[in-house]
Design a protein around this nucleic acid. Structure first.
Lengths: 120, 120
DNA sequence: CTCATGGATTGACATCCGTCGATATTCCTG
DNA sequence: CAGGAATATCGACGGATGTCAATCCATGAG
């Protein structure tokens, strides 16, 4: 499946707070990062993000999103779950409705945790 | 397949250079963006990026990358092609070797073309 | 020219993923 | 409580994707 990698890890210090001691991403970190990017790797999910962000109130419920996407309700619900699981969206249930909103800074965090490696 | 979306496009101006007139990502833009993120949606490709970026010379050939990843040469070659097609890596062939390097700013561009929509 | 080496391509296979229909769950209303 | 509405979950199906073995292509050495 994902193939075990034995990365060279010089380990300048034991401090887990500073990831820069290592030469490259370790397999666990890579897998975790990939989860975030996987969530962005679908056109409909990207559209969902922008639709919610474009909402004046900052949030949207499923019924607002099915029509502009042209997808069924279960499919939209599934995509939203993927985005929530990735930490990019937040869900708040009020009454019968579920309101989704973009988690502030989540995209930036995801991005930086990659560029920290590619930009010394 | 990808389902046709009819996005509401108020079109403040006809200028295609300013994407902000539109309310949300159009299907073509979403698909194009998704290609970039799809390239990042695999742990081994993320590791490849960081391995190349960590190289002192800024570039690496395939033979340098197969061992730390624990993958076969065709598989690594395939992943590198995905990253090149997404515009994240550049390939330069010198003699028998192909040298891959990170395209400067490509990650930033990809990121911004999404946050432009999610951060007004 | 011949051979060896690094890399790309092809074909096959197993798995993952997006989508839908059907159903379950939760909550509001009367 | 009964009914309806919004959403989540489940099962299934087809297409996409990661991986490998085998092969092909190009280049440099002799």
């Amino acid at each position: 499946m994902t193939a075990q990698i034995d990365c060279k890890v010089p380990q300048g210090s034991q401090n887990p707070q500073s990831p820069k001691d290592r030469v490259a991403l370790d397999p666990e970190g890579a897998a975790e990062l990939a989860v975030g990017f996987k969530a962005l790797a679908d056109p409909n999910r990207l559209t969902l993000l922008t639709l919610i962000a474009a909402e004046a109130t900052g949030e949207a419920c499923v019924c607002d999103l099915t029509e502009p996407l042209g997808l069924g309700q279960p499919t939209v619900s599934h995509h939203l779950k993927v985005l929530v699981d990735a930490g990019l969206l937040a869900r708040e249930k009020r009454g019968t409705w579920s309101y989704y909103s973009v988690v502030p800074g989540a995209l930036q965090d995801l991005f930086h945790s990659l560029t920290d490696w590619t930009t010394p």
